[in-house]
Nucleic acid binder design. Structure first.
Length: 127
RNA sequence: GCAGAGGGUUGGGUGGUCGCUGCAGUUCGCUGCAGAGGAAAGUCCGGGCUCCAUAGGGCACGAUGCCGGAUAACGUCCGGGCGGGGCAACCCGACGGAAAGUGCCACAGAAAUGACACAGCCGCAGAAACGCGGCAACGGUGAAAUGGUGCGGUAAGAGCGCACCGGCGGUGUGGAGACACAUCGGCCUGGUAAACCCCAUUGGGAGCAAGGUCAAAGAAGAAGGGGUUGAUGCUGCCCGCGGACCCUUCGGGUUGACCGCACGAGGGAUCGGGUAACCGGUCUCCCAGAGAGAUGACCACACAAAUACAGAACCCGGCUUAUAGACCCUCUGCAACC
RNA sequence: GAGAGCAUAGCUCAGUCGGUAGAGCAACGCCCUUUUAAGGCGUGGGUCCUGGGUUCGAGUCCCAGUGCUCUCA
């Protein structure tokens, strides 16, 4: 994920929280806001607060979500939408496959995946 | 074999596909190399480095505290002494000073450090109550009661005398020293210094968002206060150095790049010195470095299994705390066998 | 990165210099009242955050840790 595809500034995060819609799953919460700028692309920001765990747990969750976004990018439309993904505590214990499923569900709700046939919330194993 | 003591190593490996960060090369397609820890953690100490005076003096305040050594330095480490625990291997110890001074020692008790004497014992006097004098052994209290035990001694007693033990002081011997041993003296001194304190040693302040270079932009803006009779650096005060700005409120601009910043009290091997911590020589290696912050996903193989605690942010030396599993070395006691 | 503070009854807080832990509200019981509230009387309730240490004795002093809150940049 290159720099232009990331949300960086705290002002960007505030905009998304304030103006966006939110969708939740047990593993994470997504805030989405479509960007009306001319040259805008889809951008993502991942938030893992100190409540989730220590540095290792937060890093691991962030990396797995980033990998999931990379694999799902082929299916997604290139709508200019800013998405903030807030990590919830069970995510640090979840399997990678569950994170992919959760993320696919959330992106469909955001309207970033057009194919809707498997958008029902999948049963997620949480150890 | 059982039980135990001390110390160390490791914390996953190999191959493949896609992806991330840095460096080097590049025909700009890509290729090659490298890529978290023993604690990276807590921030409890000590340094390096940078700026403030080349880091200065005094008081205050803090830290350390048996002795010797190691070290850049330390509250760390090594060796030794002393005290305590354990059959032992071994472990633990804030381990200077209580005859410099002050404070405190609840309750109980006659009495808690100033001396005294409740019950009691003994002598004299007396019909008796009791009075005068001597005593601190015995009683009970307490965490702690003015050296302990025994013998002598006495009216009753008492280091009053003697022996042994303990403590203190002097002298001598050994040792670098802490200290140990010997000998002499006389019995005079409860605990608490993680209470104040005394003694010795030691500590200047701030921190890489330190500090520096370049570029861009805006208003070197307005009001109030302080200031060459000394602002500020500089922490509490005084001295000393330095010498012109500083503080508050309102309003405005920027939200960049580079250096610091990855070669270091560095790692590995080996030789020498030292009981050891450690030091020195030679050879060899270059080994993460961002600026919202790089290690993830999947598959295969062997294995009992891949599972613990946990993620560098200026850098080192320690301490402390967390930690699944695996492996190794040395030693002690008991039992059995030879 | 640098620093500061707090933790005591169900809740909010006291506790000077070490001597054996309280106050208000709440809870429970009784009285008062036709009843409730208010009022009066009484009662119970504590790992003083955790683990070591100093001391005869620690909520208090010292060391290490845990959790929470805050400040500066």
């Amino acid at each position: 994920m290159s720099r232009s595809n990331r949300l960086v500034k705290s002002a960007d995060f505030r905009k998304v929280y304030k103006a966006g819609r939110s969708y939740s799953s047990p593993l994470m919460v997504a805030y989405a806001r479509s960007n009306s700028d001319e040259s805008a692309v889809a951008r993502f920001g991942i938030v893992a607060s100190a409540k989730v765990g220590g540095a290792v747990k937060r890093n691991r969750a962030r990396r797995q979500i980033r990998e999931a976004l990379r694999t799902l990018r082929n299916l997604s439309t290139s709508k200019p939408v800013d998405v903030v993904l807030v990590v919830r505590k069970p995510c640090t214990l979840a399997e990678y496959a569950d994170i992919v499923n959760a993320l696919r569900y959330l992106m469909a709700r955001c309207g970033m995946i057009e194919d809707h046939h498997d958008t029902c919330n999948p049963a997620q194993r949480i150890r």
